[in-house]
Structure formats: C-alpha cells, structure tokens
Design a protein around this nucleic acid. Structure first.
Lengths: 115, 115
DNA sequence: AGCCATGCATCGTGCGGCTAGGTATAGAGA
DNA sequence: TCTCTATACCTAGCCGCACGATGCATGGCT
C-alpha cells in the first residue's frame, strides 16, 4: 500500500454520503458534520473542488434542481463511483489496521527476531 | 476537531516507536515495516526530515553512537515528546472514530430529522 | 574489485486542503 | 426598508507534507 498518509479522506466521505442517495454540496457538509459527531467540518474550499474532481473522474454526475426557491446542484454516484468507494473503504481500513498495528504492538525492542 | 484530514501520521509512528526505547533512522523504518505487516514503507525522504523537525520541536534528542563499526544517530523521546505522542494518539482515534461514524451510520437520507 | 545492505542527509517537485474572497436568494428582525 | 444570517455555489492562490532522486560513506560477501 502507498505509504502516503491517507490522502483523499474527503473524497471517501463524499462518496459514502452520495452512495446513500443524491445530495448537494451544502447538505453534504451538514451530513458529514452530524455523522462525525461534529468532528469533521467540511470546508467549501475543499468540498467543491473535490466534487468537481470526482465528477470529472466520472464517479459522480450532477444535475441542477430547484427546491424552496433555491438553486441546488445535486450529485449522484455512478457505477464507477460505487467501485471507487469500495476500493477506498478497503484502503482506509488497511491504513487504519496498519497504524493500529504499529500503535498496539507489544513493546519489543531492536533485535527481537529477524534472526 | 480540526477538519484537516490526518496530517503527520509519520510523526505519530516515529513517536510511538521511540516511546519504546531509543532507536535510529534505519531501524525505525524496519520496525514500522514489520509492525504494519508490510503496509508502511517509510521513505528516507520523509523520515529524516520528520526526525529533524521533531528534534527541533524538542520532542526528541539525538546522540551519535558507534555499533558494529557503524555510525548511528540514535533518537530518544523527551517528556514533551511523550506528551505529544499521547495527544496525537488521541487525535488519531478521534479521527478514526469520526470517519467510521460517517461510514457506518445507518443509511438515512435527507429530511431525516433536523425538523 | 564489485555489489548490496546499511546508514545519514537534502533538494526539488507535486498534490491536497485551506484561507480568503466573490456572487446570489430567502427569511427574520430592526 | 435595510441589514444580517443562513443557505448555496464557485475559484485563485498559498502552504505544508510526503515523495523521488540523488549524494556520500562503510562493512561484508563473493
């Protein structure tokens, strides 16, 4: 696995939310905020570029819709998006497992085994 | 919590390893590699700058030592480093909890509650 | 002698997310 | 009416982190 930290957590979040049904930018930020128990405050400067990038990558499709006199841009997951979501979820769990593996390992020092 | 994804996982790993006793660069990479079950391959271009940064931040102290004819730079955790490790561990678990909260939430759509 | 593993280090690049800024409408309150 | 807040979308530019590439040195094996 790529040793790079965990890039694209934002995309993972977006993909997950949209996998449960179409939504739009502002609502996504609110959903993530409440679901993460207030931990993740998605910034617009991060969210919108991410949304556009995922759309360009054909993982999302967008459509405008009026509601309550408000112009909203809804996004919907494509089949490719669903596949990407599964892959990123796996990558995330792998990463978490790797990190927990290091954090939780028995405090053995240096020349432990490798003999 | 800071909405920023999870920067500095490398520093968390380094801090954790060194909390179990002094070690040096090359050994840290090997320890992380085995503990993460081969998932994290710490690159020198990431590790050494991180080590230097943590040292500048007084979280580590360094001392040179010869062993097997090899010149090694050992690093040791300071009290500040121990505090930082605890804080970062907490931040990590918070982050993981937040992400799992979003991933695992019951697939309720839009107008769920917030009434 | 030549090669690989060990061991330390830095420079330049690339990418991701943020700050800051801009536009617009609806509804509430002064 | 005017202003302020929440809703709703978007972009440019910055900055920090991690990486690839590279350089240097030595010990041990063949």
């Amino acid at each position: 696995m790529d040793p790079k930290l965990f890039p694209g957590a934002i995309e993972l979040l977006v993909l997950e939310i949209l996998s449960e049904g179409p939504s739009y930018g502002y609502e996504v930020t609110q959903t993530v905020l409440s679901r993460s128990a207030g931990r993740f405050e998605l910034k617009e400067g991060s969210l919108y570029p991410a949304l556009h990038k995922l759309e360009r990558a054909k993982m999302l499709t967008a459509f405008w819709q009026e509601a309550e006199g408000r112009r909203r841009k809804y996004y919907k997951l494509t089949a490719a998006g669903r596949k990407a979501l599964a892959a990123r979820k796996t990558a995330w769990r792998e990463f978490a497992a790797g990190l927990e593996g290091v954090l939780g390992a028995s405090p053995r020092r240096a020349g432990t085994s490798h003999a």
